[in-house]
């Protein structure tokens, strides 16, 4: 498998691999997931400000969390990638601050479980994820850049403004435009 080219897992899909772990503690499935995601999580954590050593450790911890919590994943709520993103984000928060934000995120997620009448369930989560990805590729470069900075670096808007040499208002409006455009194209598809 060539990781450096940025290819995502397709066959079996990461969602199927997590399912295999949950059903039969499949170590081969774990190894494939580990090789595909741990280096991405590590990159994310380093960009997010973790040292190389601690990013190595946390990336390992993130994938072990995937193993431990495999039953918590449900493919009808989102893709494996988005779930692994939240695991990495929460580990990073825990490492730097140890506060109760992970509990807040989990609680907001639970509201979805007990709230089945959401309109976007008309399409399957995988289909929905595909649409989000395609909306993402259609964002203008300057908007995508600000979106990436926000999610990957977890940077404050003022920090993004400083590092990109842009006025704060421009960063905020690009972000806002990007989100509106994405939401709009999802609505058009629904």
């Amino acid at each position: 498998m060539d990781q450096s080219s940025g290819n995502a897992l397709t066959d079996p899909s990461p969602e199927q691999l997590i399912d295999l772990i949950a059903r039969s503690q499949d170590k081969t499935a774990f190894t494939i997931l580990f090789d595909a995601y741990a280096p991405r999580v590590k990159y994310f954590l380093i960009r997010n400000g973790a040292s190389s050593a601690s990013a190595d450790e946390l990336a390992q911890e993130a994938l072990l969390t995937v193993w431990r919590k495999a039953h918590y994943f449900s493919a009808d709520r989102g893709t494996a990638s988005s779930w692994i993103f939240t695991i990495a984000r929460n580990l990073r928060i825990d490492e730097t601050r140890r506060d109760k934000r992970a509990q807040l995120y989990a609680m907001v997620g639970e509201f979805d479980d007990i709230d089945p009448d959401r309109p976007d369930e008309l399409v399957s989560a995988t289909e929905h994820a595909k649409r989000v990805r395609s909306a993402m590729t259609q964002l203008p470069d300057d908007q995508l850049e600000v979106v990436k900075w926000s999610f990957v670096e977890g940077a404050a808007h003022s920090e993004i403004a400083e590092r990109l040499g842009l006025p704060l208002g421009t960063v905020k409006s690009r972000l806002r435009l990007a989100m509106r455009r994405m939401r709009k194209s999802l609505e058009d598809l629904a």
């Binding site: 990781q3 450096s4 940025g6 995502a8 280096p39 991405r40 999580v41 590590k42 990159y43 994310f44 380093i46 190389s52 990013a55 989102g78 893709t79 494996a80 990638s81 988005s82 779930w83 692994i84 993103f85 990495a88 984000r89 929905h128 994820a129 989000v132 990805r133 993402m136 979106v147 990436k148 999610f151 990957v152 994405m182």
Partner: peptide
């Protein structure tokens, strides 16, 4: 989901 897409298509270390 967007963040997941960025993670999935992003670089690796």
């Amino acid at each position: 989901e967007l963040a997941g897409g960025i993670l999935e298509q992003g670089d690796v270390t």
